[in-house]
Each structure stands twice: as C-alpha cells, then as structure tokens.
C-alpha cells in the first residue's frame, strides 16, 4: 500500500462513537477528564484523538488529524518531532519534541492537542495507528476497524478517491459533488463525502487549496541571500563612507578629529 488514507462517508455515520472508544483503547489515551483547556468536553483533547461533532440536519462528523499530504505542522516543527512518514501518516516522536507548540499554531485544521496537565507534556493527535499497523499488530487503524456502519474505511488514497467518485456517480442525489480533502491545503489523507456542508464541521471555508508550507517558502528561501546581501552591503557602505570621511579630513587639515571611540585600557604593571 503506497499512501494510507481514510474515507469517511458522513451519510453513513450513525454517530455511535465506537471509533472514539476503539481509538482510546488502542492508543491507551486514558480517561477523558475534560479540563479548562479543552474547548468543550466533546472536543478533541490529549485523551481524545478522534471525536464526533454534530453537523447540520442531524449528521455526525468524525474529526481527527487529516494527515495532510504537505503537513504544515511537520514543516513548522523546528526539530522534526512531527514528521510525514513515507506511508502517509504524520507521526510524532516525543523524545525529540521541545514543546514549542508551533505545530498547534500552524495546523490549518487546529487538530493538534497538548498534555497541558503534564510536567513533561507531549503533542497528542491521531497518528493513524502508524506504529501498530507498521508492526503488523493490526491490519488497519482501530477506528476504521471498529466502525459498525462502515462509514469510515481505510485504504490507499488513490483507491479511496476512486471509490468516492464511484459513490457520487452511483447516487448523484445523495452526495454533494465534492470530495473534502482532495484539494484542500494541497490534499489530505483523510477524505470526506457528505450530503451537507462541512464548513462548520472541521472544514472551515477559509481553507486554501494550495500547500500551506509553501506560504513560508519565499521568506525561507530568501534567508541565505538576505544574510549575505545585507552583510556585503553593510561592509561596502562602511568602507565607502569611511573612505570619504578620511579623504575629507586629509583634504582639510582644520577638520575636527574623530569623536568618540574607546582606547584600550592600560594594563596595570
């Protein structure tokens, strides 16, 4: 399998939260203790890596990390603790993380959570059960395996995109003709099909289609030339101005001597 992905069909979700329970069990996240720093109790938290929120017309929508194809969080991480794996999931290494929380600022979906209650806090989010699936302990992420309605399924991204298009084509009246995650933020590994607008359920309408890390690239690419350029210009200016002043002083013997300047201290004998 080349690119792990999840397709969630909102029209099939019964809102039972078996995915939430399975995720909590598999990843051993511990009991929810909704605290101040959590927006609302049903919001994502360090102990709740996936959750279900209500969408218009009684629909239930599952939220979790979108595993962007070009993740802003991984691009923002100054030490590479969050990283895009070759298989697709965005994984996390707490032993490297220095806790700057820039990933939480950068995530366009605001899906990353923090262990605020801990003195050795970690960033917490869905990792698509990356290590367990990789080790072969489970065949697919706990959430998709647990779904009794097959509303959320695991597979290769290209195959799931094809499946999503097939469903839309088979029942055009049932779905909005849009696959959420196909193009948003440069594409995500977590795709959604729905018959209601998802802008209030994890897909804000302010999202851009292009890559988010690319927003920073112009500034970051300018760093080496800016450093060298500014340095060269400053050296040049200093030399030119200094030379002009020296010439002016030599040409005019009455010119006042240079002001200021510190002389080296006399060493005590």
């Amino acid at each position: 399998m080349s690119a792990w992905a999840i397709l969630t069909d909102v029209t099939k979700c019964i809102g039972c939260e078996e995915c939430v329970v399975a995720c909590k069990r598999t990843n051993d996240t511990g009991e929810d203790a909704p605290e101040r720093w959590q927006g609302s109790p049903e919001d994502l938290s360090s102990t709740r890596w996936t959750t279900i929120v209500s969408a218009p017309r009684g629909r239930s929508v599952r939220l979790h990390c979108r595993h962007c194809l070009e993740p802003a969080c991984a691009s923002a991480c100054p030490v590479g603790a969050l990283h895009k794996t070759p298989e697709g999931p965005v994984a996390y290494d707490p032993d490297i993380c220095m806790g700057c929380r820039y990933c939480m600022i950068a995530c366009p979906f605001k899906m990353t959570r923090y262990e605020w209650e801990s003195a050795t806090p970690r960033v917490r989010k869905c990792i698509l059960c990356y290590d367990r699936v990789l080790r072969g302990e489970i065949k697919e992420p706990a959430c998709t395996a647990a779904c009794p309605a097959k509303a959320t399924i695991f597979g290769d991204r290209r195959a799931l995109l094809a499946e999503a298009r097939r469903r839309i084509a088979a029942e055009p009246g049932r779905y909005i003709d849009h696959i959420w995650g196909e193009h948003e933020v440069g594409g995500t590994s977590v795709l959604y099909l729905s018959d209601v607008d998802l802008s209030a359920a994890g897909w804000p309408s302010s999202l851009r289609d292009g890559s988010y890390p690319a927003l920073t690239h112009p500034a970051m690419h300018a760093v080496p030339p800016a450093f060298l350029g500014v340095g060269a210009v400053m050296f040049g200016l200093s030399w030119v101005i200094g030379r002009r002043e020296r010439l002016a002083r030599e040409g005019d013997p009455d010119a006042p001597p240079r002001e200021g300047g510190h002389t080296p201290p006399k060493a005590e004998p």
Partner: peptide, 17 residues
C-alpha cells in the same frame, strides 16, 4: 513544554521551519 530538548535544534536541521 520540554525545554531539555532545545539543543536538538542544533543537530536536526529543519530549514522549512
């Protein structure tokens, strides 16, 4: 959150960040 890891920035290069 984990200031003891601040030194890792010097050995792990992340020029996109």
């Amino acid at each position: 959150g984990r200031p003891w890891n601040i030194w890792r920035m010097t050995v792990r290069w992340q020029p996109t960040s």
